[in-house]
Design a protein around this nucleic acid. Structure first.
Lengths: 182, 182
DNA sequence: TCCCTAAAGCAAAGATCATTGCGTTTACGT
DNA sequence: ACGTAAACGCAATGATCTTTGCTTTAGGGA
């Protein structure tokens, strides 16, 4: 008996192609119509995929959107590492801001917010994990909660409700304020 | 000729009753199933109202949810006025936190977030107007943007993604930090 | 390369949603 | 009180979504 009965998932080839097509279609549609107006048959048609495939993989539209929103930024990209925590945080925040300046990414985040609170869905958990990593690597002088409240939260708020306020001064300003009060 | 041709809207009596019933039904359903899974026929049934009435008044579910989310807190309730800006902000933040600790209110905010970005929908605009009022009344020592970034945004972030972290120390902590760096 | 079967595609049936025309109720101005 | 028309309710229709059983394709281990 092997430890893993190994259901042998098949993630490559055709499945990967379907995933990619669905991903693009969802991003386009969520941006065009808002997450609440995106249906699975719609996505299927634009992706050139059979609706059944989507129903079987995700079940419903909110789950699908939330899942795609969670993995929109590559979770294993390299994080800034200059040796200076403040500099690292600033560059990292800047990355996030630039990412969410893409209307499609912002729209996905709105969809992820809608799905949050239910089950374990939290499309920003990877961002929090990154913050923890950055901070602990540099000795943990700053509590993670502070970074969440005063760097991530303002960015997320602006992405969701006031996306036109995401300018290039924001990252240094937020991180600056984080270090000002200590 | 009167300035307003006065289409003579009818907001009282039966219409008000329908609105109230729909409001309750939406809050319950959004909380139970998430905003993405709430349909108009569903709301109509629970509210004991004809679906057509809802379709005609709001058009679709996201618009309905966003609209109800916007006016969930009475826009003309009295704001704290102790003469001390810091104290006023703390109490005001506390009010908001207590409001969004109600799961139904949090669920509505998630729905509002989903609808944001499209059109003029921004279910938090009244909160920002209140912040502006509080600050300008007391001489405007604190920029409104700072209150948004460091008080509203952290609260909203937690409501959306980590509602169990909304404790009683949050309001004083956030406002305290706002005044610490100056 | 050959199997095994996970995952995709297809098609049909059933459920649910959205729209529209028309009659009824009733809020609001006079 | 009365009249007007706004808002609601009802019912029928067409569109759209969802589910399900079956077939076909092709990923990945032996």
């Amino acid at each position: 008996m092997s430890a893993t009965p190994s259901p042998a998932r098949r993630t490559g080839g055709r499945s990967a192609a379907v995933l990619a097509a669905v991903r693009s279609a969802v991003e386009e549609l969520v941006q065009e119509r808002g997450s609440g107006q995106v249906t699975i048959p719609m996505v299927a048609e634009r992706a050139g995929v059979n609706p059944t495939s989507i129903y079987r993989r995700w079940g419903d539209a909110p789950s699908m959107i939330n899942d795609l929103a969670t993995y929109r930024i590559s979770p294993d990209r390299p994080l800034p590492d200059t040796g200076d925590l403040r500099e690292d945080l600033t560059r990292w925040a800047q990355e996030i801001i630039e990412h969410f300046r893409q209307p499609a990414a912002a729209a996905l985040l709105r969809g992820g917010a809608a799905a949050a609170g239910a089950g374990d869905s939290d499309c920003l958990r990877n961002r929090r994990a990154e913050a923890t990593l950055l901070i602990e690597r540099d000795g943990g002088e700053v509590p993670v909660e502070e970074v969440i409240d005063h760097v991530i939260a303002p960015i997320v708020y602006r992405v969701l409700f006031r996306p036109w306020t995401l300018d290039d001064e924001l990252a240094p300003a937020l991180v600056g304020r984080l270090f000002a009060g200590r």
